[in-house]
Amino acid sequence: MSTLTITDLHVTVETEQGPREILRGVDLVINSGETHAVMGPNGSGKSTLAYTIAGHPKYTVTKGSIDFDGQDVLAMSVDERARSGLFLAMQYPVEIPGVAVSNFLRTAKTAIDGKAPPIRTWVKDVKQSMSDLRMDPSFGERSVNEGFSGGEKKRHEIVQLDLFKPKMAVLDETDSGLDVDALRVVSEGVNRVKEETGLGVLLITHYTRILRYIKPDFVHVFVNGRIAEEGGPALADRLEAEGYDRFTETADA
């Protein structure tokens, strides 16, 4: 049982006009096995939350804390966070020319587990995982994310989720740019990992359509850098019908 606890989180980014506050006091608790959907309009700070949890150097935490099973996440380096069991599926996975996917996966798995995976089962696991995510085995020899379509990049993220077996995953707009078929494949992948490992999920999305495939236990509406409303799955249905207008109007007022 793992718990990620975010308390009164304030985050700024540097801009030409000086630091700008993006997150203005976020409180969130996610336990193993739970799926939390964070929804909100563009620019509300959803992705900033994702990148701050992962430790992207662009974001500065000015106040608050992130705790993961008693460890101070904000004191940890980017790679330490990953090794402690946190995973970020990125909205825009980065291309690494010349580094083969198979080499990358094995290097990362070795780093996360602290030891090289047994070759026999590892090769089988990679093959199975790629097949589950409808990725051709030839992707193993290709450079990481280079020349991948948007959908292929997202499926590659979920292959990693499956192979690295983190305790807690942040999925940052994993649904964006996916057609219906790819969305289903990716969602099934996430659900499979959840079932197998009891993964906790923070699902960041603009649209409700992915929630038809990955059922949230909690829905948080993110507006203007903080959580404006929280509820169960029914809240997502309401957003589907009404959009974000009533929140943004309040925020503007």
């Binding site: 430790g55 980017v78 990953a82 780093a111 990693q160 690295f164």
Partner: peptide
Amino acid sequence: QLFYLRSRGIT
């Protein structure tokens, strides 16, 4: 690129 790799546990 470095952030991506490090976010996968690689030092």
